[in-house]
């Protein structure tokens, strides 16, 4: 018998430490789970359109990855609390898969323009084209909090996408901001 997707996602979120957030969600935890399932569908479609490979956003795949790399799945679900833009969430997952952050551009003019562009590449491949991800939703800039900041050979390097301590995760709700 196949598990109910809502219950699988509920267990996954509890295992990742999102239980209190889930319980506190208004109007109900089930509402949050439904929204997340809908977002996962959209992210899966975006991922397939870009990568052309099987999606890692099935619940079965996320549960398996949660065992192999719990911090990556936690970081991803934390990102869903900051954005529901499928393109941005695919960008997040590509970084978690190991893509390198080649370039970040942000163009902002008060009450006029916001554009956030992230260019990724696969470090071990000289031939694969770079991937470019764009958003015009200002809330998506909050994703930068999760980017690892470093230097490599003395030069600046954003590297990786990491979960925040739960204390740092603000009580924003998923899917609050429309793209």
């Amino acid at each position: 018998m196949t598990d109910n997707p809502t219950e699988v996602l509920r267990r996954l979120l509890h295992a990742q430490g999102f239980g209190p957030i889930l319980q506190a969600y208004s109007p109900s935890p089930d509402d949050l789970l439904s929204r997340l399932l809908a977002i996962l569908d959209k992210v899966a479609a975006e991922y397939h359109a870009r990568a052309g490979s099987s999606t890692p956003f099935t619940l079965e795949a996320l549960v398996a990855e949660s065992s192999r790399n719990p911090h990556k799945v936690r970081a991803f679900f934390q990102a869903t609390r900051l954005t529901n833009t499928p393109e941005m969430l695919v960008m997040v997952w590509r970084i978690l898969e190991g893509f390198s952050i080649q370039e970040i551009k942000m163009n902002y003019q008060k009450r006029c323009i916001f554009e956030f562009v992230v260019v990724l590449s696969r470090p071990e491949s000289q031939t694969e084209p770079q991937e470019t991800y764009r958003s015009t939703t200002i809330f998506d800039a909050r994703l930068l909090r999760h980017f690892g900041t470093a230097t490599a050979a003395g030069q600046p390097s954003f590297n990786g996408f990491f979960p925040l301590d739960q204390d740092y995760v603000t009580p924003e709700t998923v899917a609050t901001h429309s793209p």
Partner: peptide
Amino acid sequence: GVPETLDACARMVREYWPMA
């Protein structure tokens, strides 16, 4: 002693050894 610590180290090493 969490997984992201080792992950971060591996990612940083790849900055220098992309074919790691």
